[in-house]
Design a protein around this nucleic acid. Structure first.
Length: 421
RNA sequence: GUGAGUGUAGCUCAACGGUUAGAGCAUCGGACUGUGGAUCCGAAGGUUGGGGGUUCGAUUCCCCUCACUCACCCCA
């Protein structure tokens, strides 16, 4: 590391992170509010877990061989010598919390949601950041495929409320510990046999992750991939039954979907259902929602043997294509003239705020013209005029900026006027 | 981690290797000290991302570095 000796060092947000400025925050708040409203309608409750966890949690939960764990984690040693990690995903934290607090013994259904920052040391590009935000939901102890369908429908419902269009829902089953090994073997074998017909990249994938060959854009590889066996033909009776039921429930909800046999997802822990919602309006990073079932994780952590399913939604990605109406914000600007009027004006502002009217007071002496110019620039809905004349009369002027209409009255009358308009 | 493209004022962009790096928009002030949007005038704003090199001279050419953008890998 060469430290540049220049006296002035540029201070900037670290690579892959972003400030969310007040203008953008409006959209974030709308998304957060709609997500909460939606999830609570399905009986979900918020569960807030820490941003940092023991590194081991992700090694065990996310998977030691996953890309996330092998090369994308923000891991550090704290002053007590513990290895900690900024969470790259949320699921392992919830599983940990359930076991730690024995939430599986509660009466309440185990349905949780959460939204917050996640951290992955990735190379930033469109729709991908090092600190990014996810909305995450998890359901535990529901093994019925109706639960799988319900969360897909819930994600769909939220996206509709956000005005997101051009999406496609992809579903697949990756089998379970009983049936998946046979498929992996068959696929690896098939890829090995046709290896010479593959691009260098796919030759490598034939060893590491043959499922990824399905994704290649090279036509020769696509042709080879079409000859590969499909997971559907390897599913055990239970998994096949589960998948069939999922599709039936999706039909009931009238959710259009496409069965995508190559949809495997990068996380190691999935079992049975996997799904993804993609959008044609995004760039290469086109996945808005990703999720699936992970029936073994709880047990693998040494907790109770209960199944689970959940999804994560990328907030930056969703916001980049959401069509949200800008919030209607109306506020009053206080125009005061002179010291005495300033004191009276501050009291007036206090009164209006106590009654739910947003008031902006700028502590800068201005002439009437300057006040109006400023109020106009700030897009104030109303201007309250407090000057010498008004104070004598005990009646104040209130101007509606959009129409130019101006009324006069005591503060109670003006409040009534504000509430009507 | 690999590859490509781009870095000039708050924003969008100019400037053949040649004077003191300009314009529009935005900001602030004035014309205009009891009523906004318009107009006019003015001001402020820059080590041309940073460092090194070539040159009499570099925003311009070369190298390194950093950042951004896009793609690969992977993922939300």
């Amino acid at each position: 590391m060469t430290e540049d000796a220049s006296p002035k060092k540029e201070l900037a947000a670290v690579r892959g992170t972003k400030d969310i400025l007040p203008k953008e925050v409006e959209g974030w708040q709308a998304l957060e509010r709609l997500a909460r409203e939606t999830f609570e309608l399905y009986g979900y409750r918020e569960l807030r877990a820490p941003v940092i966890e023991a590194t081991e949690l992700f090694e065990k939960g996310t998977g030691r061989t996953s890309d996330i764990v092998t090369k994308e984690m923000y891991t550090f040693t704290d002053k007590g010598g513990r290895s900690l990690t900024l969470r790259p995903e949320y699921t392992p934290s919830v599983v940990r919390a359930i076991i730690e607090h024995r939430l599986d013994l509660e009466v309440e259904p185990l349905r949780y949601y959460y939204m917050g920052p996640m951290f992955r040391y990735d190379k930033p590009q469109k729709g991908r950041f090092r600190q990014f935000h996810q909305i995450d939901i998890e359901v535990f102890g529901e093994k019925d495929a109706a639960a799988d369908a319900e969360i897909i429908e819930m994600a769909d419902s939220l996206l509709r409320k956000l005005g997101v269009t051009g999406t496609e829902t992809l579903v697949n089953s990756v089998g379970c510990r009983e049936c998946r090994p046979a498929y992996s073997r068959a696929l690896r074998e098939a890829a090995g046999k046709r290896k010479s017909g593959l691009c260098p990249d796919c030759q490598r994938k034939a060893e590491t992750n043959p499922l990824r060959i399905f994704d290649c854009k090279v036509e020769a590889c696509r042709a080879v991939a079409r000859t590969f066996p499909l997971i559907q033909d390897f599913l055990c009776a239970e998994c096949r039954d589960h998948f069939g039921k999922l599709l039936v429930f999706l039909d009931i909800y009238k959710i259009p979907y496409r069965v995508e046999p190559r949809l495997v997802r990068g996380l190691d822990y999935y079992t049975k259902t996997t799904f993804e919602v993609v959008s044609s309006h995004l760039g290469a990073q086109n996945s808005l929602v990703g999720g699936g079932r992970y029936d073994d994780m709880m047990k693998d952590f040494g907790g109770p043997d209960i199944c689970a399913i959940g999804f994560a939604m990328g907030m930056e990605r969703v916001l980049s294509i959401a069509e949200l109406a800008p919030p209607k914000r109306k506020f009053l600007y206080l125009a005061y003239l002179g010291d005495e009027a300033k004191k009276a004006g501050l009291e007036m502002a206090r009164y209006f705020r106590a009654n739910g009217v947003e008031c902006l007071v700028e502590f800068k002496d201005r002439g009437m013209k300057a006040h109006f110019g400023r109020a106009n620039k700030l897009q104030a809905a109303w201007v309250l005029i407090v000057g010498g004349d008004e104070m004598k009369k005990g009646r104040f002027g209130l101007k509606e900026m959009a129409t130019g209409r101006q009324v006069e009255g005591a503060r109670e009358e003006l409040l009534a006027f504000l509430r009507e308009n």
